[in-house]
Each structure stands twice: as structure tokens, then as C-alpha cells.
Write a protein that binds this DNA or RNA. Structure first.
Lengths: 113, 113
DNA sequence: CAAAATACATCGTCTGGCAATATATCGGCT
DNA sequence: AGCCGATATATTGCCAGACGATGTATTTTG
């Protein structure tokens, strides 16, 4: 059941989804993503640095995002932008997340007698 | 930030939440829970046996559920029911799940300009 | 000038979930 | 009667995700 597997992987890696989502409005660098995610979720999703950077590297290895250094600023920043594949992945996983969330909600809501 | 920690733990163990939820309408035995979860989520959450039983044992150890064997039927069945603590836990974690889900949704939705 | 924030990164560890495996009974089909 | 699939519980070994801790260096703020 590859479909099943997909659902599983999706919910497990939902922080990666958050990272992708943070890049929808244009390129960002790591530290800014961390803050953006925290703020967009009203502080509820605190993306740890030890979690964020591995995710970024993995997404890059997968080809979902592409990185480039900006040395012009004081501290060098590594900017990430979504690739075409990354945009597709974001859409697919967003749909998947919503399906998962509504499945959980169905379990939590009182069933019709 | 203990609050943060709570949020994290909640989303990680969301299958345990599903198990608790499956017991709201009265006691159930393992195999029935497995099917109930699968059906209530339209097949999207397939609770693996190797996942379910450890969860049940853990919830029991925590005192959230209580087990009793029914030997009267052919194959003996182990019935689980929510304890008072389990009901409280279900409510708390349900609220937590919804907060988490809406936080993720906030990230996925296009932000207001 | 010191402290806090910015900015990237890695490592070890813990935990959750899964596949595989094991055991045993029951119902239906042939 | 014999076989198979579904029922029913359970354990084990493995892998991946996430976290805390730690490290380095610069820049802003007090």
C-alpha cells in the first residue's frame, strides 16, 4: 500500500511541510524561517534549530529547495527558494495534511447515532 | 518552556489520541479499535498492530485506560475502558490537537498582505 | 565593553511507528 | 476433513524525526 505509506510519511514530516510553506512568499534564510513559523503559528510551533537545519539540508538534497549564500550582508546568510518540484510537493503535501487533519477530526467528533 | 513541550508531545503521539477517542462510546477491544479507527477515518488512518498494542499497554500503564479479559467468547478478548483520568486526558489532548491543527493551517493558508 | 540576538551547523540520544514475526482460534468453502 | 482467510493479541528489531546540547562567529544593543 504505497498510498498508506504516503499518508504516514506526510504526517510524520509535517515540520518539513511548515518549512516549505514558509517559502511560498519568496526566498528566505534559515533563521528567518524559524521566526516566521513561530510567529505564523502564534508561538505554538517552535521550530528548533537542530530540527530546522537538517530539514533544510534534506529538502535541498531532494531538490525541493535551492540554496545560495549571500555574503554581502554582515553575517553571511544562506537563502532558500522553492524549486518547481518544491512547489508541487508543497501543494501535494498540503492536500495530504488537510486530509489527515480531517480524518483525525472525524475521530474526535462525536459520531452520529 | 513546558508548554511548548506539551504541544510537541501531543502531535507526536496523535495515534494515542485516536485510540482514546475510539473508547469514548464505551469499552472496546484491540482489534475492534483498529477497525473503528480505520473506518472512522475512511481508511486514511490504518493503525498497525505493532503500533496499536504498545499504545494500549502504555496508556494502561499511565492509568488512562483499564483492561480486562473476556474469556467467555471463543478467542479471548481484552477489553479496554477509559478511566476518569483517561477522559480528562482525552479532552485536554483533543483541545491540544485542534490548537495544533489550526496553527499548521495558519501556516499553510496564504497570509494577509 | 559586555551581553544578547543573529546565523549557521552538527552530534548524540530518545521515542514513535512500522514491518516482520509468532501464536492460536474461528468461520466458510471445497 | 482440510485449508485458508479473518480474527485476536503480542513482541522484536529497525529506522527516521525531533530535540537538547554544544560549537563558532558576527552584529547590534545597552
Amino acid at each position: 500500500m504505497p498510498d498508506d505509506q504516503f499518508q504516514r510519511d506526510l504526517w510524520r514530516g509535517s515540520l518539513a511541510l511548515a518549512v516549505l510553506a514558509a517559502l511560498t512568499d519568496g526566498p528566505q534564510y534559515g533563521y528567518a524561517i524559524q521566526k516566521a513559523v513561530r510567529e505564523a503559528s502564534n508561538g505554538q510551533l517552535a521550530l528548533n534549530a537542530g530540527t530546522l537545519y537538517p530539514i533544510l539540508h534534506k529538502l535541498e538534497a531532494q531538490g525541493a529547495i535551492k540554496a545560495s549564500w549571500d555574503e554581502s550582508t554582515g553575517r553571511p546568510r544562506k537563502w532558500y527558494r522553492l524549486t518547481a518540484a518544491g512547489k508541487r510537493q508543497l501543494k501535494t503535501q498540503t492536500d495530504g495534511w488537510r486530509a489527515y487533519a480531517s480524518a483525525v477530526e472525524a475521530l474526535l467528533s462525536p459520531k452520529p447515532a
